[in-house]
């Protein structure tokens, strides 16, 4: 029974996966930042840092072609994107807040229309999650029902042990397949004691109560107070593991080009703007409210899940210091 893997072997496993033709994505140094990016080899893996952006782009890229078109003899011909070319991928070192997000997004990308781009990437990706040992004061996973030791969403889950080892927990068939195939990298040894995990300090939120408050306070002045500062930059949505709004645009000429799907943000002032000039959410408080409602009410109404894993990225990235966790705590104080 393969129980543990050394850090050295983990890096060697990446080398081998890459050699075998897999795309391996993991935290990697990119200038001053750490980002989830394709790794050329095991040495590139950065451990113990929360990447600046989430891992959602492994499944839902910032920008992707959804079709190509060509106009021939006055007719428009449309061509599919060949999804079979998408590489088999291993997402390695995904922290619990990132590993859990695809499991939430599966719902919106397959509830009615099947988003084959997302689903094909999901199918072809194995997630090796990693327990979190380094949180900061923006983290609030425990407040929204996750934790530094949460294995939900991972196919294999690694728990750091003393002495540079990781305990492996096989969560899914996909995870089992990978371990079986690369058995030699793992050992049967028990390994030492677990390293202390991070302990986000925020208390658990009553998400049900928050939802009920949201239900009854669509028109509250609260939104004006909270969102007065919001500049609508969209940073919170772009670095969020669970935000999934996108836009569709053409790139190319009238005769030939591609249609692309790319991230969008409900905080942008033109997000709902119509050609007529009518804009149903024409002031920032309405847009900020939509962000909170979507995450903590609408998505739950529709799919029974909260669209937030408490990674805290939006808190760190907000240029005007809006703290979504503080907003939720504020809501908790109100009477229903």
């Amino acid at each position: 029974m393969p129980n543990t893997i050394t850090e050295q072997n983990l890096r060697a496993l990446i080398d081998t996966l890459v050699k075998d033709g897999s795309r391996v994505v993991g935290p990697k140094a990119a200038g001053d930042m750490t980002l989830y990016e394709p790794l050329a080899g095991g040495t590139e893996l950065v451990l113990g840092v929360l990447p600046r952006r989430s891992a959602k782009e492994t499944f839902f890229p910032l920008c992707e072609d959804i079709l190509s078109y060509q106009k021939m003899e006055g007719k428009m011909t449309v061509e599919d994107i060949d999804l079979s070319r998408l590489p088999s991928t291993v997402l390695i070192g995904a922290l619990p807040c990132d590993a859990a997000a695809p499991g939430i997004l599966d719902a919106v990308f397959s509830w009615d229309y099947q988003d084959e781009f997302y689903l094909e990437r999901r199918k072809k990706t194995t997630i090796i999650g990693l327990a979190c040992t380094k949180s900061d004061d923006a983290c609030f996973c425990t407040a929204v029902g996750y934790s530094p030791a949460e294995s939900r969403g991972s196919d294999i889950f690694l728990l750091p042990l003393e002495g540079g080892r990781y305990r492996c927990q096989i969560i899914s068939d996909k995870g089992n397949l990978l371990v079986e195939r690369y058995k030699s990298f793992f050992t049967d040894e028990e390994g030492g004691n677990a390293l202390p995990l991070s302990q986000p300090s925020m208390e658990k939120l009553d998400l049900q109560k928050i939802r009920e408050w949201l239900e009854n306070n669509f028109e509250s002045d609260f939104w004006k107070e909270i969102a007065e500062r919001c500049v609508g930059c969209g940073a919170c949505a772009f670095i969020c593991p669970a935000c999934h709004c996108f836009d569709i645009n053409d790139e190319g000429s009238e005769g030939k080009g591609v249609r692309r799907k790319h991230w969008d943000a409900c905080g942008f002032s033109k997000f709902t703007n119509h050609a007529s000039g009518h804009n149903p959410r024409d002031v920032q408080p309405q847009r900020y409210r939509n962000r909170i409602m979507h995450k903590f009410k609408y998505y739950d109404d529709k799919f029974g899940q909260t669209l937030c894993t408490g990674c805290g990225r939006c808190v760190r990235a907000c240029p005007v210091g809006i703290d979504i966790a503080a907003v939720l705590q504020e809501i908790m104080k109100y009477e229903l």
């Binding site: 990308f109 509830w111 999934h244 709004c245 409900c266 703007n273 119509h274 149903p280």
Partner: peptide, 19 residues
């Protein structure tokens, strides 16, 4: 209602009217 439906398939988020 008129909204800016981009995908038409309940994914892109543009045409949310409340819930």
């Amino acid at each position: 209602l008129e909204r800016r439906m981009k995908c038409g398939q309940g994914r892109c988020g543009h045409c949310a009217v409340g819930t």
